[in-house]
């Protein structure tokens, strides 16, 4: 069995297959799979002994869960009030343009990047802000800073590809 399924099952066991922890379990699953494929939802439903409709209903309700593949490197552009007032929408447009994407949520052909609008990330004084990957935070963004950032992360992406290649 896929190691990721084993890890997911281990986590569910750790929380006693408690279905009230469904959100935490889905977070774990998404961490392992990057998105939530139908088979994973089925797996969770079976292990927790709840209908798959409930799992799917929860997944579709919350913004954080994705039933579509997402880029390995996700670019999150904050469109909270302060960021919006300070031009976050223009930063967003520039990212899409530079990556050749039509709309947010799309994944680049190589599967490496996707751009997403997020609601306030709580750093309004640094508006507009962009979050790349899990931890890289860029404040006081402007559209003209976008190309340089993309260049930087293309290098990160290349490294990731090589690592994947090595493991395969």
């Amino acid at each position: 069995m896929d190691k990721r399924y084993q890890a997911l099952e281990a986590y569910m066991k750790e929380v006693n297959y408690d279905s009230s922890r469904l959100l935490n379990i889905l977070h774990k699953a998404q961490q392992l799979f990057l998105w939530l494929p139908p088979d994973v939802l089925k797996f969770i439903a079976e292990k927790l002994n709840i209908p798959i409709s409930r799992v799917a209903g929860v997944v579709s309700f919350y913004n954080f869960f994705s039933t579509k593949p997402v880029g390995r490197i996700q670019i999150k552009v904050c469109l909270g009030t302060a960021c919006y007032v300070k031009g976050g929408d223009k930063v967003m447009e520039r990212f899409l343009e530079e990556l050749g994407l039509q709309e947010e949520g799309q994944v680049t052909e190589d599967g490496m990047f996707s751009v997403h609008a997020v609601r306030c990330v709580g750093a309004c004084s640094m508006a507009p802000v962009v979050l790349i990957g899990e931890n890289d935070f860029y404040g006081r963004m402007s559209p003209d800073k976008v190309p340089r950032l993309i260049k930087k992360y293309r290098q990160v992406a290349e490294k990731m590809k090589q690592e994947v290649g090595e493991n395969a």
């Binding site: 959100l23 977070h27 919350y62 913004n63 954080f64 609601r119």
Partner: peptide, 8 residues
């Protein structure tokens, strides 16, 4: 701790 999932 229970973690939300992005629903205002």
């Amino acid at each position: 701790i229970r973690i939300g999932a992005g629903a205002f």
